[in-house]
Nucleic acid binder design. Structure first.
Length: 345
DNA sequence: TATCCACCGGAAAAGGAGGACT
DNA sequence: AGTCCTCCTTTTCCGGTGGATA
């Protein structure tokens, strides 16, 4: 380990800081909703804001503060992207019991109702886009009509949708209060990174220009932390702007790996394909067909079967949800019906 | 004017894992 | 044990798009 790192934990993106930079208002709203003392009447929240603004972190830390008689469950919908999987997860979180597969969705619903009853319950659906895309809003509709809905708080989190793309009937029974997490400003990023550096690195090992540079480059706290952490690992005396520039690519790679870690090998392979194509074509946009053929070649090189084009089309959508790529949709025209794809950031 | 381009994305179907029921 | 479920993943099929081209 590098000599300037005294305590690596605060530099890690999963680290929950004891205090957040400029999130007091959001904190209060979350707390109110979780403890059933809302002024607006609705206990449901929709949390919206770009990646790396602390949505998940703040939610987790408020979940930890909730009294133990409240049922809490956190569902990561990029993993649990069907009603069935999410319900299974909810049941297991509430009861701490494993549950076998083979049940009907309505069986799971009944089991959950038996176990929640009149108990206050908070259900967090993070990365809710994945669930809605893959399985529609049936889970949200069910939860919003839950028989003990006065006791239930539904928290949805999305970096892409300021309003939930759900059917009218779901919207009207859910009526979530919207909570917006604004992008960190340069000063906030600076302060956030300064605090983490203070808790983690030897005194005076970080030059001010390094933090200023990071803050000017990104407002995504996760990326910022990866930059700082990677830089710290690559020096034994100090971090300055030059060093940050050197480790930039490596740090971004780590960020992407972290996001893709829970996904399949094929997701990673598709992303790798796009990275290669972007490098070769120097910023030119890439069409989805090109990506598919290249992905097939890559699979062949690894002696693995490739998935169908239809499937990869969905996977591209996943990468887009993760904001790792940006896609421009063309429906017809010179290029036919296709997506033009660039790397996010 | 007809056809082509080069995909999108919904629908259905195939095949498989794991239970429930008799 | 055998049949009939359920849900999951992936493939197959296909209608649709609107400017370019013959």
């Amino acid at each position: 380990m590098s000599e300037i790192i005294e305590n690596p934990a605060p530099l890690q993106t999963q680290f929950l800081p004891s205090k957040f930079v400029d999130r007091e208002d959001e904190h209060a709203v979350l707390q109110a909703s979780f403890s059933n003392i809302t002024e607006t009447g609705s206990r449901n929240l929709h949390i919206y804001g770009p990646r790396g603004t602390g949505k998940t972190h703040l939610t987790h830390s408020v979940l930890e503060e909730t009294p133990s008689q409240v049922n809490t469950c956190y569902v990561l919908c990029s993993h649990h992207d069907t009603e069935y999987k999410a319900l299974k997860r909810i049941y297991e979180e509430i009861t701490n019991e494993e549950i076998n597969t083979g049940y009907h969705v309505s069986d799971l619903q009944r089991k959950i109702e038996e176990r929640t009853g009149a108990i206050d319950t908070v259900i967090v659906l993070d990365e809710v886009d994945f669930l809605l895309q893959n399985d529609g809003d049936s889970l949200l509709y069910y939860l919003s009509r839950h028989e003990n809905k006065e006791k239930l708080s539904i928290i949805t989190i999305s970096p892409n949708q300021s309003e939930l793309p759900v059917e009218e009937r779901t919207k009207s029974s859910l009526q979530p209060q919207q909570v917006v997490f604004p992008q960190y400003t340069g000063e906030e990023m600076y302060e956030l990174l300064r605090q983490r550096a203070e808790d983690s690195l030897t005194p005076r090992s970080v030059h001010q220009n390094a933090l200023t540079y990071i803050a000017s480059k990104t407002s995504n706290a996760k990326i910022g932390l990866h930059l700082l952490h990677t830089a710290a690992e690559n020096t034994d005396d100090f971090i300055d702007e030059e060093l940050i520039k050197e480790v930039q690519e490596q740090a971004y790679q780590r960020y992407a790996n972290e996001l893709l870690e829970p996904f399949t090998q094929h997701h990673k392979r598709v992303y790798q394909t796009i990275e290669e194509l972007v490098e070769e074509n120097e910023g030119e946009v890439i069409q989805s067909g090109k990506i598919y053929t290249r992905y097939q070649e890559l699979c062949k090189a690894y002696k693995e079967d490739s998935l169908s084009q239809r499937r990869i089309s969905d996977y591209l959508k996943h990468l887009e949800n993760l904001n790792l790529i940006e896609a421009d949709y063309h429906y017809g025209g010179t290029k036919g019906k296709t997506r033009e794809i660039q790397l996010g950031i």
